[in-house]
C-alpha cells in the first residue's frame, strides 16, 4: 500500500492541483483519492493499468469537488481563496509558487471556470490544463464523444462571452 501511494502521489497531486484552489484543498483531494483507492481496491481488475484506474478515481474526486463548490455557491458567494470548509485564507497564505505568473494565470483560469457548471469545469480543466483529448475525457466520465464535444463547445462559448465582457474596453 505504501509503495502504491509513494509511486502515484506526485502524479495525482499534479492532476488534482488543476482542480484545487489552494494547498489545503489539494491535500484534502489527494487524501480523498487515496482513501477511495483503498476502499475500492477490490474493484480494480488486473487487466487494466493501475495508473488509469487511479487517475479515474482522481478525476472523479476533482469533479465531486467542483459539484460541492457549485452547491455551496448557490447558497453564498464564495471567494476564490476560501478553503473547502469555508475558511477564508488571507491573500499572503496562498503560496505564489515557483512561477508567480503561472500561479496567477492558473488562479484567473480557475476563477473564470468557476462560473460554469461543475461538469463543464472538469471538462475544460482536463482539456486545457492537462491537455487531454475529448475522447479520453469522454471515456473517463462515461459520456459519448459527441456529447463531450458539444459540452466543450457550449462551455467555451460561455467563456468567450465572459472574456469579451471582462476584457472589453
Amino acid at each position: 500500500m505504501e509503495s502504491l501511494v509513494l509511486r502515484h502521489h506526485p502524479e495525482i497531486s499534479r492532476l488534482l492541483w488543476r482542480f484545487a484552489r489552494n494547498p489545503a484543498d489539494l491535500e484534502d483531494l489527494v487524501q480523498e483519492t487515496f482513501l477511495r483507492m483503498v476502499r475500492s481496491l477490490d474493484t480494480w481488475r488486473a487487466d487494466q493499468p493501475f495508473r488509469h484506474w487511479i487517475t479515474r478515481i482522481a478525476t472523479n474526486v476533482g469533479r465531486d469537488f467542483y459539484r460541492r463548490q457549485a452547491v455551496r455557491r448557490r447558497w453564498a458567494t464564495e471567494p476564490l481563496a476560501a478553503t473547502e470548509g469555508g475558511e477564508v485564507l488571507p491573500p499572503e497564505a496562498v503560496d505564489p509558487g515557483a512561477d508567480p505568473a503561472a500561479r496567477a494565470a492558473a488562479s484567473e483560469f480557475k476563477e473564470l471556470l468557476a462560473t460554469l457548471p461543475a461538469d463543464d469545469r472538469a471538462l475544460l480543466t482536463l482539456h486545457h490544463l492537462e491537455g487531454w483529448d475529448l475522447k479520453t475525457i469522454a471515456a473517463q466520465f462515461g459520456w459519448t464523444v459527441t456529447a463531450t464535444k458539444l459540452r466543450a463547445w457550449r462551455a467555451r462559448n460561455r467563456l468567450r462571452a465572459l472574456l469579451t465582457e471582462t476584457h472589453s474596453p
Binding site: 491535500e27 509558487g97 503561472a102 492558473a106
Partner: peptide
C-alpha cells in the same frame, strides 16, 4: 495566453 501560462503552474510540495 491564459491557458498557456496556467499550464506551467506546478503544484505545491505535499
Amino acid at each position: 495566453v491564459l491557458v498557456a501560462e496556467a499550464r506551467r503552474d506546478q503544484p505545491p510540495d505535499l
